[in-house]
């Protein structure tokens, strides 16, 4: 079983913000396309560590994680593969909510 840990603060940015490239240098779409999607495709388990990051806006988190469902992944697969670590209790609550809401909207729960 292969596993990869992505440290958002050091691998990407301690100040992630916005949805798309025109919003700034470290948007959710960039994190999703450059880090999340390749890691999920190549590993059985992907751990996302949000330690040392500024509070991420919902726009960033929704685009990065809700966007995984729009990219074709199901909620079931993401629950199996993704593990979230954060000093903030609300980060996992929000991220799983965006994934679930998008999965329901796109009919990709399982």
């Amino acid at each position: 079983m292969t596993s990869k840990t992505i440290f958002l603060a050091t691998d990407f940015s301690p100040s992630p913000a916005g949805r798309f490239f025109e919003d700034g240098p470290f948007p959710g779409s960039s994190f999703r396309d450059k880090f999340l999607l390749p890691a999920i495709a190549q590993n059985d388990k992907v751990i996302i560590d949000l330690e040392d990051t500024e509070l991420a806006g919902s726009s960033f988190l929704e685009e990065a994680f809700g966007g995984l469902v729009r990219a074709g992944l199901t909620e079931t697969i993401l629950k199996k593969k993704l593990e979230l670590r954060s000093p903030r209790n609300t980060d996992p609550i929000r991220i799983w909510r965006y994934i679930h809401d998008e999965a329901v909207r796109c009919n990709r729960v399982s």
Partner: peptide, 21 residues
């Protein structure tokens, strides 16, 4: 309370928050 806080974060920092447009 954390669930309500997540709701508040969604409401304030969602949509086109921090967007150039």
């Amino acid at each position: 309370l954390l669930e309500h806080h997540a709701d508040l974060l969604d409401a304030i920092t969602g949509s086109d928050f921090e967007s150039a447009t």
